[in-house]
């Protein structure tokens, strides 16, 4: 995040990106940086949405396939695929997304989360939606994506898995 761009008073900056057909936004304050798709080391015994681990400037962080985490259809890896590094409760995680860019929105344009799912995305991951010119931007609840509950799932998964491969 090295450089700060101009912020007009009252504006909110988002890192916007695509996952599959949907557009998402994450508050820029939650974003540590955007990096290109590097060599990811597979993490055995982890849930399927955990893509693996990478070396982020000497620190080892997990990389999550956001499409798989949200249970929506991804569009495969391409030249615009990047890893957006987000931070939540001291844990840094890389999210695999497409075409990230920084945009500014007016916070007043944020509408509350609809009760039903937006497209394929379950409403519990959504903080709100913003109507853009031609599309709907989903504000992603990063904390929820990496929530305690989900971490518990990581270990539950592991327990299920254990025993199948061991002695």
């Amino acid at each position: 995040m090295g450089e700060r761009r101009f912020t007009v008073a009252g504006e909110m900056q988002l890192v916007a990106f695509k996952v599959g057909k949907e557009s998402f936004g994450v508050d820029v304050k939650k974003v540590e940086g955007v990096i290109s798709l590097v060599d990811i080391t597979r993490m055995p015994r982890s849930p399927s949405f955990v893509e693996g681990i990478i070396n982020l400037r000497g620190q080892i962080i997990a990389v999550v396939d956001l499409a798989s985490r949200l249970g929506i259809e991804g569009s495969g890896r391409g030249s615009k695929t990047r890893i957006v590094v987000v931070e939540s409760e001291d844990v840094k995680i890389g999210l695999i997304v497409d075409s990230p860019e920084v945009i500014a929105i007016n916070p007043e344009d944020i509408e509350p989360t609809p009760q039903i799912a937006v497209g394929e995305v379950e409403s519990s991951f959504i903080k709100g939606v913003v109507k853009m010119d031609d599309k709907l931007l989903i504000l992603l609840d990063v904390d929820r994506v990496l929530s305690e509950e989900e971490r518990a799932d990581v270990s539950d998964f592991e327990h299920e898995e254990k025993g199948t491969g061991g002695i």
């Binding site: 080391t41 015994r45 080892i60 409760e89 001291d90 844990v91 990496l146 971490r151 990581v154 270990s155």
Partner: peptide, 14 residues
């Protein structure tokens, strides 16, 4: 390994 991955047994770190 950070909190997110610590619960996965079998690894002492990376």
């Amino acid at each position: 390994l950070d909190k997110f991955l610590k619960k996965i047994e079998g690894f002492a770190g990376a």
